[in-house]
């Protein structure tokens, strides 16, 4: 049985994440795979380095899974996030969600990726042609209810 959460420097396996959510009650499974892209705001990206506060990041993934499983009845979710140097085309994050009905599987999956960007203590160091830059997004606070509501709104749009 694959673990529901992982922060790992090993290459991610979408199949392993899928196995973590399988079960007889599932009527639909969605997966999301985030990839390293070769361009960002006009820059030619060479590679990315992901740094994590690993123990809190893994805990944050667990918080997101608990939020989703509470919101969507019968949902089972797993999330693995990679750290270290990633080349173009490699997977940085894999999410799998199994639910009794398909609409919930899509919504819960979208919710998870938005929440990851909001609260999980992982930082992307972009190495591009001509330099490098730390990418900074949201101020991470798992107890910020407004952020959680915003993620829910996007998921259910």
């Amino acid at each position: 049985m694959t673990s529901a959460t992982a922060i790992t420097s090993d290459p991610l396996s979408a199949e392993a994440v899928l196995r973590a959510v399988e079960g007889p009650g599932a009527g639909a499974v969605t997966t999301f795979v985030g990839l390293v892209r070769d361009h960002n705001v006009g820059r030619k990206v060479l590679w990315l380095d992901y740094e994590a506060y690993a123990p809190l990041a893994e805990k944050a993934l667990g918080i997101i899974i608990a939020e989703a499983e509470a919101r969507w009845t019968g949902a089972r979710m797993a999330i693995h996030h990679r750290t270290g140097r990633l080349e173009i085309g490699e997977a940085s994050v894999v999410i799998a969600v199994a639910t009794p009905h398909r609409a919930d599987a899509f919504a819960a999956c979208r919710y998870a990726i938005e929440r990851i960007k909001q609260i999980v203590p992982i930082w992307k160091h972009e190495h591009f042609e001509g330099g490098e830059v730390w990418i900074e997004g949201a101020t991470a606070d798992a107890n910020d209810e407004a952020a959680r509501e915003a993620a829910l709104k996007i998921a259910c749009a």
Binding site: G34, K117, W123, W134, A138
Partner: peptide, 11 residues
């Protein structure tokens, strides 16, 4: 924690 940027793409 500086502002986080996990996942993929922009928030």
């Amino acid at each position: 924690l500086p502002p986080v940027s996990g996942g993929s793409g922009a928030a």
